[in-house]
Design a binder for these strands. Structure first.
Length: 420
RNA sequence: GUGGGCGUAGCUCAGCUGGUAGAGCACUCGGUUGUGGUCCGAGAUGUCGCGGGUUCGAGCCCCGUCGCUCACCCCA
């Protein structure tokens, strides 16, 4: 009876050895600067009540209107696999009452996110992001810090060929003023139905249209950056000043539109050339009304999400991935049943002392076991046979030069410590 | 959702104008007793993505379908 193979669902990103080590390195490197800055872990469910995203992320976004994995659970509730991280963090902060404590609330997260799109290079249906949120503080300095933390993450991977684009979406007053003129401008355009619908919900979204005819049509559109209130303009200027001071290069892109509706004020994107069509490796911004519309206090926040999969692709494209494969310190080759049993005890003890130890299982011939030891990259090998068990000492072989020395089994630990 | 490219061994691929499958790498074993890397030898592994059609005969041609991939849209 032959069974059919079962494949992974379409478009998921997954990492098996040896690439998984690189993935882990990228993920941990990206979030390390946030931990150093006092952000604490928020571990959240991957599924949420659907209305969290429809209300929080925005009905006009593609993410909500056509890319969500939504299903009904056994209790008849509408559930959605999280397409992004911020809304879930807000929900949890409100639910746990963290916003009632000391502000800002500074948290980080890491995990899988889901969007039902056609897969493509760097775009998956299940993908990985790390992110941070700083909630409850309106200060351009924290905007700059959040951007700097993201930038530091990418820099720590050794990435160079990326750029940071920033803009400001202003406060409610700025957007209202701009919206009037923008709608006036748009009303003169000849839009197809889908675009008109999107424009009606969020006219800014038209700046996001990549079609040449739309780009041309929008070329003369009024820019939000020119409508910033005095306060918003001051804020944006301050953010830029802090970034200058930190030596972080950026490009002001007044036409930038984020894919999620909740952004206000400072917004930013990190873009890497060399990934193919999907060039965004991270982005984020401030969100003034989000917490309130999710039923919490009217606190502002700022955060980012960084694409782990894309950062890994970027690191590969730039050739900065470090070889990071596991290799053990000691490889034990037992030659019989009682030796195998003894090697389990020896290995357990050594591992308890932090020495990376592997055992050649499977009763292979010695030559084959030595080959396996060699390929594993282990630094030392011992062969455990009758005479070794009887005498209590083994020949400790250093694989790099083939040299051996006689060592008592109960002294392996201290000898290996000196040599590692 | 729309379009292009591609599906042959674990991997990378070859396979002529149709004549019922191959290489390299990897893997296992061996090259006299219990010591790796090199070398030599041997071996295992494929419903040629799947279904149908044309044909005496299909990996190759035709249709369909599924999958992968790249791009559009959009985004991390």
């Amino acid at each position: 009876m032959k069974y059919e193979k079962i494949q992974a669902p379409k478009g998921v990103s997954e990492y098996a050895p040896p690439l998984s080590a690189a993935f882990e390195w990228v993920r941990e490197s990206l979030i390390a600067p946030a931990k150093l800055a006092g952000y604490q872990l928020m571990e959240l469910p991957v599924f949420e009540d659907t209305s969290l995203f429809s209300r929080g992320v925005g009905e006009s976004t593609d993410v909500v209107s056509k890319e969500m994995y939504t299903f009904e659970d056994r209790g008849g509730r509408s559930i959605t696999l999280r397409p992004e991280g911020t809304a879930g963090v807000m929900r949890a902060v409100i639910e746990k009452g963290l916003d009632r404590g000391q502000l800002p609330v500074k948290v980080w997260y890491s995990g899988a996110f889901f969007r039902a799109e056609r897969p493509q290079a760097g775009r998956y249906r299940q993908f990985y992001q790390v992110g941070i949120e700083a909630i409850g503080l309106d200060d351009p300095a924290i905007d700059a810090e959040v951007i700097a933390i993201a930038d530091q993450g990418f820099k720590s991977l050794g990435l160079k060929n990326y750029r940071l684009e920033i803009t400001s979406l202003g406060d409610a007053q700025s957007r209202a003023a701009h919206r009037v003129d923008l709608l006036k401008f748009i009303s003169k355009l000849d839009l197809d139905e889908a675009t008109a619908t999107r424009a009606a919900i969020n006219p800014l979204r038209l700046f996001d249209d990549k079609r040449p005819e739309m780009k041309a049509a929008m070329a003369g559109a009024p820019l939000l950056l020119d409508y910033l209130s005095e306060e918003s303009a001051e804020n944006f200027k301050a953010v830029k000043g802090y970034l200058d001071q930190l030596g972080i290069q950026y490009i002001v892109n007044p036409r930038m539109v984020r894919g999620l509706d909740y952004y206000t004020g400072t917004t930013f994107e990190f873009i890497h050339e060399g990934l193919g069509a999907q060039s965004g490796i991270g982005g984020g911004g401030r969100y003034d009304g989000l917490m309130e519309i999710l039923g919490g206090q009217a606190l502002s926040g700022i955060g980012f999400g960084l694409g782990v999969d894309r950062a890994l692709l970027a690191a590969q494209a730039e050739g900065v991935l470090v070889e990071n494969q596991f290799s053990s310190d000691l490889f034990i080759i037992p030659l019989g049943e009682s030796q195998k049993s003894a090697s389990l005890t020896i290995a357990a003890k050594l591992r308890g002392a932090g020495i990376r130890t592997e055992i050649a299982f499977g009763d292979r011939a010695l030559k084959g076991a030595m080959k396996a030891a060699d390929k594993s990259g282990s630094r030392f090998v011992i062969v455990l046979g009758d005479s070794e068990l009887a005498s209590g000492s083994v020949e400790l072989k250093r694989m790099s030069d083939g040299s051996t020395r006689s060592v008592k089994i109960d002294q392996l630990q201290s000898v290996l410590f000196e040599d590692i």
